[in-house]
């Protein structure tokens, strides 16, 4: 399973300090999320497009990601224009679409895509483990970060073998009790194995003298590019708030 689709690359954004990334992106997405109207979200979307261009990502993968995100937005388009109060623009049978409703749906669409693009361009371009490391510096409770660390480490090792075992035995899923029971036992087995594995992991950690914290071998260094990026994102965010 290759999960970090966008983390490889040599662009400016790939090389930024993950601590700066969090400090820059979190206020920006929060401001974008609570915007109203269309101008603000449009401005945010343009900023996000610039960020995405800076990250020089694989266009195909990026597009398929955006399509997945916009399926939910499409669902909103089926409802919002017809239920928002305002002046009727056109009618389909008994349903009347209002101008205000359409503008509102446009606003949501712009905001969603602006935030998603910024997240991919800024956070997606770092490795997950270095993001977790940055969170420790940002005073997120260390238990939570450790939990995340182990959680992520063990995702990729689990599923494949059990699935293969089912395939080898010619398991064909269908709408019947046998299928549901089989999946339930698959999940059960996954849990049992995970539980046993976790016991071994903890024993192994104790053997290596675990005392509640992980020594870190590589350290972050703040460069000039980081400062420039942090300050410009802060400026952009402030401008978006004022506008």
């Amino acid at each position: 399973m290759h999960l970090e689709e966008f983390a490889e690359g040599g662009s400016f954004l790939h090389r930024l300090d993950p601590r700066v990334k969090f400090l820059a992106i979190v206020p920006y997405v929060l401001v974008t999320a609570v915007m109203q109207g269309q101008k603000g979200p449009l401005a945010a979307l343009s900023v996000s497009v610039v960020l995405t261009a800076l990250a020089r990502l694989d266009a195909g993968k990026l597009l398929s990601r955006l399509v997945a995100v916009n399926v939910f937005v499409l669902l909103l388009w089926l409802f919002i224009p017809f239920s928002y109060p305002g002046e009727t623009v056109f009618q389909i049978g008994p349903l009347a679409a209002t101008g205000e409703g359409i503008l509102y749906a446009v606003s949501i669409t712009l905001k969603t895509n602006a935030i998603v693009l910024a997240t991919i361009a800024v956070l997606g371009t770092s490795e997950v483990f270095s993001l977790a490391h940055a969170l420790i510096h940002l005073k997120i409770p260390d238990k939570l970060v450790h939990l995340f660390f182990f959680f992520y480490r063990y995702i990729t090792v689990q599923y494949g073998r059990l699935r293969n075992a089912m395939l080898i035995r010619c398991f064909r899923p269908g709408t019947n009790m046998h299928t549901y029971r089989t999946y339930a036992y698959l999940v059960g087995m996954l849990i049992v194995r995970s539980y046993e594995r976790s016991q071994r992991i903890y024993q192994a950690m104790l053997c290596r003298g675990f005392s509640g914290r992980f020594p870190v071998v590589s350290h972050f260094r703040l460069g000039r590019g980081d400062v420039v990026f942090g300050l410009s994102m802060a400026a952009v965010t402030v401008v978006l708030v004022i506008v």
């Binding site: 450790h146 939990l147 182990f150 959680f151 480490r153 599923y159 698959l186 539980y195 976790s198």
Partner: peptide, 14 residues
């Protein structure tokens, strides 16, 4: 922590 983490990754996979 390992217990909770590994169980939650099992759920993620499920």
């Amino acid at each position: 922590i390992p217990e909770v983490a590994v169980l939650s990754s099992a759920f993620f996979v499920a």
